[in-house]
Design a binder for these strands. Structure first.
Lengths: 202, 202, 202, 202
DNA sequence: AATGAATGAGCCTTCATTCAT
DNA sequence: TATGAATGAAGGCTCATTCAT
């Protein structure tokens, strides 16, 4: 209609933006179902139906079911990494840990995050499992690193870093089992309360 | 009760004892596979193969695949309940919590316990899920009760019991993700270290 | 016929000439893939990719996948007919047979010809199968006719024409299974050697 | 009923004989369909239906569709090898060739043999293709060997063995394209006539 | 003239479950 | 008590084909 506002042809950016948006919609829909019904309990027909599209269309955006799950999980992990790194500099180790934990908690109260815990890594092929374990490992390693540096700068008490990191991870994962109706209603409050628990642990 | 107990034929008790032993073997084998490969990644053929029997034989001992999983999970839960209740009287709330947590940790370092966490409740039918949630809920409720009484008797610090119980559960679950080779080698040590973490939380 | 031929706009002739050239390119690309991977092993995506175009574009030139295969096969058959009929008059029946066989051998050492043998007629719909069987039948009938007339003019020995024609067809088809690297390198030699075999048969 | 005639339990031999018979029935049914409709035109539902069983049952006898095809092809090849080797000793090279060719022709007038030609090796996976090419190669090599020895003992005229073996193979394959109604009715006659053609070639 | 996007149709394969023996 | 054999049910994936642009 408006030949001035933009080229009559969708420019590449626009087109790929739309495509990305659709891929994101698939991720969101799939994550919701994975979290509700588990991975093997979720059919691609179900995912497609939730989006009002047909199953083969999913294959236009993703290679297969596992890729969709990996996209869900990656999206969650990336969200943690992204938010955790912003402004994480200049902070004491203790506060760095709160930053990471807070980011993790936020994600764990969303469907993509819930996939991380509710869907077992065992549902992935060895290749996919390696990929996801890599991401999970990065966060775990980051937490261990922070714990260690906190023991140096005195902001975190002495502990076995592997055990403590594992325990902290367990606490963070715990939120994902709360009913989404409750996490939706009390997100900031739960975030603070779980952070308070973490505070006692370090 | 039965004067026929010395009959030359296998009496009921003997017969059911043997049957129970075989059922236990199935549970053990299945739990191992469920923990290694996930629920849907485990086939009944695989379970049977591990036992050197054939698939239909499983149906002589269990109604269906889900029943086997439920038996695994129940076995784990019962082990917690059993060990946690022994001598849990007369203890301070704080020590009661350690008793329960310790029992839970012990279980979580075995295959049946690992099933509790590695197999998602989403893999169960609504009926089975309700049953398992009931058991899980009992333990969670017990922990909450202990926390509350601990806040009364002063052995546990003030906290939001639901959040804290959830967090403690998360920590306990975390052990189940450790490689079994490591938990086998360091079981008592890890038990103590994780209990130490719990100690900081309450 | 058309005075408009020098029009500044592409005239019909030019336009269809270009279109025909593109259709030929599709035939060539498809024939190569059909010969390498079989009919059902070849996807239209693959054909398009080999040409650097996209799949729907193929539908501008051909109604469907089968039409492309039919075009490949027809192209091969026509090449035989064309070359076999040129100067086939005035020859002895024996030499007419060599003419046809030689033309057939030439085609069978190219991709379109290979399609005739490597792709089964069973991959065609009944309609397409009838069409192709018609062409194949024409050549077979021609060979039978030549054999019969050769038995009359004494240049071909007595034989069961149907069986001999079938056998000759078998020999001709055999070249299509030679690796194309070898037929490319030894085309004239192989042509002569196979013709020599035919010579012994008649 | 008769406890004497045989053990009350099916003995292993009997059981596996029945199983083999069923597998053979599947091969026969599948070969017929593969020959009629091509490999990709044949569905396992179709094969099962022809046998009055259900699709999954096929998987009790064969690992997958390709294995069934391979069994068809192998059965045909083995039949050739088996019949060709019996009494092939002590014969002149020329007669050895007739023995092999005759065995091949017999097979090519049956469904399993037709699969060898009507189903393209391109429909097989690389692994399966290698296997089948191996068998095909063995027969081709045998023919070449016979041709060579025939050139030595003077019973076969001088020729390019590779080309001639290829041509002979082509002739033998040709029978498989004759309508089965006709090959069924004229089997011995066609056998002789095709052998007569072969006789002219060597 | 060409393509991005979407879909209909279909097939192979897997597996828990059953049943006759 | 145990198993060989068979099946129902279902899901992932592929691909030729269409259509709006």
């Amino acid at each position: 209609m408006s030949t001035v506002e933009q080229s009559p042809f969708h420019d590449q950016g626009e087109r790929s933006r739309v495509k990305q948006a659709k891929a994101d919609a698939i991720i969101e829909a799939a994550a919701g179902l994975f979290a509700e019904q588990g991975y093997s309990g979720t059919t691609l027909d179900g995912v497609a139906a939730r989006l009002g599209i047909t199953k083969p269309t999913l294959y236009y955006y993703f290679a297969n079911k596992e890729e969709i799950l990996i996209a869900c999980m990656s999206s969650a992990y990336e969200s943690v990494v992204e938010h955790a790194l912003v402004g994480a500099k200049n902070l004491s180790a203790r506060d760095q840990l709160f930053t990471v934990a807070g980011a993790y908690l936020d994600v764990m109260m969303q469907d993509t995050g819930r996939c991380l815990v509710r869907v077992s890594h065992l549902d992935l092929t060895p290749a996919g499992r390696a990929k996801m374990s890599g991401l999970k490992g990065k966060i775990d390693a980051e937490i261990q690193k922070i714990l260690a540096s906190g023991m140096s700068d005195g902001t975190i008490r002495e502990c076995d870093v592997r055990v403590t990191a594992s325990a902290i991870g367990g606490v963070l994962n715990a939120v994902s089992f709360w009913k989404s109706s409750e996490t939706n209603a009390r997100r900031p409050e739960l975030r603070e309360k779980f952070l308070a628990v973490i505070a006692t642990m370090i």
